[in-house]
Design a protein around this nucleic acid. Structure first.
Lengths: 356, 356
DNA sequence: TTGAAAGCGCTAACAT
DNA sequence: ATGTTAGCGCTTTCAA
């Protein structure tokens, strides 16, 4: 690999002149000098060593991204959009880590980022404790957290970008109501995160508004023991199976997310139900993948690209000078995508399947 | 951030002693000195700046990973396993890039890796040209390529790790045959990569062996124009729809991969067919996601974790001293996972659905 | 308009 | 057993 020295020598100038060229300070030199330098750069296929640049400047064009697991299609999707935004608008590459909901892994990822000189990180975490984000932020990192809200009344150095979970769940629930469903349920996992409670609140608000408060219930499918990519779906599956086995059951279910929705449907079928005839299901996420299944999943589309863009912008613009203003951006869902997992019910009895 | 200087000062020793501690050369010093240094490191929460280490040593504990798109669940899965192996066994982090099958993006990713001092990269690319891998390898990178074979008779500095695509497709095809299918097809996209032609060969070999050569056909669903994550599925979908519309159609289809299999099933249903009653489908990949759909996808499970481990090992052990021995590792599939997308046919007429 | 030189944080000879 | 010092490749004053 050619160095700046090689270029300087070949062009017959000093290294500082070459450096000036590299950094756009071309006004300070004769055109002829500039050309000689550029020619030398080309001839040697010189690319400045970013390590050395970073060591000097303290900045590295790298963005950290922490996700629970890249094998989860939603996180994969987000990662893709984050990468595209970072690359396209800021020329940054992505240093990515999966944490499997492990606190130590998260902490060690932060440490490594710091050691690598990375000062911007986007975090998607379902751990309830945000303490180590704050610690990283205090150590000088620009931290952007996805799918959380700022803790009210608490000064924070962490930015937040999140979908409007309340509204997403409300939309999903309203859709079921519009289709004639009166027995509603919300399927979730054990453990209350901000995003989960917001969804539950949205679900209940829609039910309340339709006078369905009493029958609407929240089904907690149990804890996520170990971390596996399929656990959310597994929990959904057991909920679906239980529903099929039990007596009184809802006709319409809103699931925590698309993966869980798919699990619920699978479990319901395992138990002999037909979807959507016997049970209608709505997801939240809007992954294209689940448009392929039968029935295709009706779901609330989240504005992933816009959120990714916002997270990247936020991470980049948070210099050490970051003001203490509230930095929280909430994104309304793009809307509900009606596919095939919701049946229309006649208004009075939850029995007649109208469409499918 | 504390530096090695700070630690040295606090411990009352020189920087080289601290450096020796950091690099495990603790035998050269008194126990008491070691302890003082360690105490200072802890007190200052000192983490060596990897940038500086790298600048000096020329090595950085980073592994590059190039994928067509992280939003594709198969690549997400591979990425996850690669990351786990790199982290666990070598303490390396992942610098990841999506290329959307764009040649320039691939090339620029290599450039950036080099500039960042990264000298190990795993590449998953569907571009047919391997020239730029070779170029990167020639520039001193350890390049490991997934899902390709070494070009025979060609000296290469690029290592290859690949599933046994021939065998995977053969297994899938044999399963259909075992279930009584006699009208077989293989669904693929336009453009012949090594991996695709190996799968086609495996498909044909199985058909031949069963005396089904004449009826077995390869259906090319057309080109992948722009890159989107859903294009493979879309191509599959159009194949499925065409099959439903056309007259004589196969009873059993092997798809290029799971995503395409899902597309084929969706298209077939769009056209009014029932899966698997009217059309049986087998995928290749073994993604857990598609066990959730209805019918759950019967597929050939690829040994993703083992392949990921092999790729990481290969990338790490390829020092500048890498011998010129053939470095190609082929992994047999784990086997066929029988789920629900294949119907058993009576031996004589392809009509009676026996299971489902 | 150009060059000399200090220094970013660390490693590893080479001294002592 | 421990310290001194010369760089790794680059940026950036400060001089010329």
């Amino acid at each position: 690999m050619a160095t700046i020295q090689d270029v300087a020598q070949r062009a017959g100038v000093s290294v500082s002149t070459v450096s000036n060229v590299l950094n756009g300070r071309t006004d300070r030199m004769r055109r002829e000098t500039l050309e000689r330098v550029e020619a030398a750069i080309r001839a040697l296929q010189f690319t400045p060593n970013k390590l050395a640049q970073q060591l000097k400047t303290g900045h590295t064009p790298l963005l950290g991204l922490l996700v629970p697991s890249m094998a989860n299609p939603m996180y994969g999707h987000i990662a893709r959009e984050v990468e595209a935004a970072a690359q396209e608008h800021y020329g940054h590459r992505l240093l990515i880590g999966s944490t499997y909901r492990d606190r130590d892994k998260e902490a060690s990822f932060f440490d490594d980022l710091l050691a690598h000189g990375v000062r911007k990180v986007i975090v998607i975490s379902s751990l309830s404790d945000e303490g180590h984000f704050e610690a990283a932020a205090a150590r000088g990192m620009a931290v952007v957290s996805y799918d959380r809200r700022a803790t009210p009344g608490r000064r924070t150095r962490v930015s937040h970008v999140t979908p409007d979970n309340f509204e997403a769940a409300r939309l999903a629930t309203q859709h079921l109501i519009d289709k004639g469903h009166r027995q509603l349920a919300f399927a979730t996992v054990a453990g209350m995160t901000m995003s989960r409670s917001a969804k539950i609140a949205g679900f209940q608000a829609a039910a309340d508004a339709a006078g369905l408060r009493k029958s609407a219930r929240v089904i907690d499918g149990g804890p996520l023991n170990e971390y596996g990519d399929s656990v959310i779906a597994d929990v959904g599956r057991s909920i679906g199976a239980k529903l099929a086995a039990g007596g009184a059951r809802p006709t319409g279910i809103v699931a925590l997310n698309d993966l869980m929705a798919m699990g619920v449907m699978a479990g319901a079928r395992d138990g002999g139900l037909q979807v959507p005839r016997d049970l209608s299901v709505v997801g939240i996420d809007g992954l294209f993948l689940f448009a392929l299944s039968d029935p295709p999943l009706t779901t609330v589309q989240l504005p992933v690209r816009e959120m990714a863009r916002a997270m990247v912008d936020e991470a980049m613009h948070r210099g050490p000078d970051a003001g203490s203003e509230e930095h929280e951006r909430v994104f309304a869902p793009d809307g509900l995508i009606e596919r095939g997992s919701v049946a229309a019910l006649s208004a009075r009895v939850a029995k007649t399947p109208v469409r499918r």
